[in-house]
Design a protein around this nucleic acid. Structure first.
Lengths: 86, 86, 86, 86
DNA sequence: ACCGAAGTTGTATCAC
DNA sequence: GTGATACAACTTCGGT
């Protein structure tokens, strides 16, 4: 077994805490790096003449369960109608 | 009119669009995987008796410190530049 | 005339700066208060059974110039088609 | 099915929806007015020879300080609570 | 399962 | 027009 009771909740807990925090912060950094990559791809696409805003909507729609999308559209249409905007 | 068909769909057509979207979706997947890893670390820590909410606060505050420090450095640089010292 | 050169950029400039900052921070506070009021109205509506997300979309559409809205929809449709999603 | 017509449009119908939307849009207008005021103050300051970008930094940092202080207070409270001292 | 809070993502504004 | 910054919206998460 790796890790006694003492190590887990005893006098060593601060050390353990630091290790957890470190791991989290490192992962957070990696995550940010990927987020930056994504931004870069959008930039590239923009440079190629694409409309970034609509591309984002496209990605959202694809990620979204298709039925759910339709359902939300229906509700919106209902509201638009009820205000005489459709 | 703001934006022709050509401008909106990109001079290189739909194939390119698909390729951009694919790259974005792949990166998004990697990013999500890391997000999941982070959750896992929090879970582990929780299992070790730590309070997740407080750990998140800790991470937030440490990040704020870093950001604040960075902002202050940037401001300093601006001052130095404006005095021709940088 | 109110405000000499001295007052504006000379020894008094720090005092003026503080006054500007104070005004800004006060206004920011008021702004936040109103933002909170808005959230409250949405909450109320939610309590009445309305779908908050779609209400927000509705407000966005009404604020947006109608032609612009149509234009954006068209671009999105184009992209959806080019990926065979429509 | 997730959400009936009744649930989505609210038991009290379109009249209520319009009333909610109106309240929101009025508040939004007030909010915008204050945002404009803030911009005006920055403009004024700029006219007085101040560097707007640096002023914004200043406001940001002061806000960060306040937020950080608040976070720390909250964390302290959590600790106190968890020890049954609050 | 819900609710409030927190964090993340997306949009609009502004200075350059 | 572009990049940075600030603002607002949406999603997620932990707690109840």
């Amino acid at each position: 077994m790796t890790g006694t009771y003492q190590e887990k909740v005893g006098g060593n807990s601060a050390g353990n805490l630091k290790s957890f925090i470190d791991r989290i912060e490192n992962l957070a950094e990696e995550k940010q790096a990927i987020a930056d990559d994504i931004k870069e791809v959008y930039s590239e696409a923009k440079g190629g003449g694409f409309d970034v805003k609509q591309m984002r909507r496209l990605v959202t729609i694809r990620k979204m369960d298709r039925d759910k999308w339709r359902e939300e559209q229906d509700t919106l249409d209902l509201y638009l109608q009820s205000l005489g905007l459709l």
